[in-house]
Amino acid sequence: MRIHPRYTQRGAIAVLGGATLLTLLILAFIIFFILEKGLPGISLSFLTTNPTDMGRAGGIFPTLIGTIILPLLAIIIATPLGIFTSVYLSEYTKENKATRIIRFGTDCLAGIPSIIFGLFGYIFFVVTLGFGWSILSGGLTLAVMILPTIIRTSEEAIRAVPKSYREVSFSLGATSWQTVKKVILPNALPGIVTGIMLSIGRAIGETAAVIFTAGSSLRIPSSVFDSTRTMAVHFYILAREGISAENAYATAATLIIAVLIVNLSAYWLMHRFIAKRS
């Protein structure tokens, strides 16, 4: 039996379009569901007071601090490593065995599940190096986790800088490093920053890698050796232990808003970057 191409074409549009629509609807549902249930619980006092009674009442102030400081530490550590790696890969070396190994390692690192990072961070930073459950252990673990993302996005951004800029710079007597500093990095910057923003988004939402390395203390930390609790961990504990649905929703909404802000500004940056290019 042969069906007329016109009908298979229409059928295809219906099925493929339906799949796309479903995906978008799921996304919209998740965001609206959380915001609808959670937004009423968010207030200035919710954001600025300490939780009481294990989080049953009160706000989420200490977790805000944890949520800011852990990703920040991770970024401070991973950004220079990531950018230097990508500069080395794209500007200082030809494709050879070493670069293939580095790329393969980066890809593997990107695919490792966060629970493994949690285990590693626990046994290496918390136990072996003796940092304990702390901001330092959590930040270092997150840094290792986001490193591949930063390497990849930076490398893409650097490769997008036209080859002719490099030629011109070299022909004017620049060294490799001068070319990197004066021409390549400034032009790749928006792309690099986009990668950093996306990494921050991932670090903010991370739970498994953080809970076993930074712990879940609700006290306000006074040094990098203190334990801290991020919003994501707090939300997990509230939801899983059934402590308070209302506070769980409000925390989830805050978390979603934070992640959306970070990601949308990343896309905005990228968009502006592309617009400037063309």
């Binding site: 959380i34 988004g201 939402g205 959306l260 990601n263």
Partner: peptide, 17 residues
């Protein structure tokens, strides 16, 4: 990029839903 936002939603939120 909108669909890629799905990747940005923390896994605990998926679990909660």
């Amino acid at each position: 990029p909108t669909i890629e936002l799905l990747a940005a939603i923390p896994s605990v939120v998926y679990g909660f839903i």
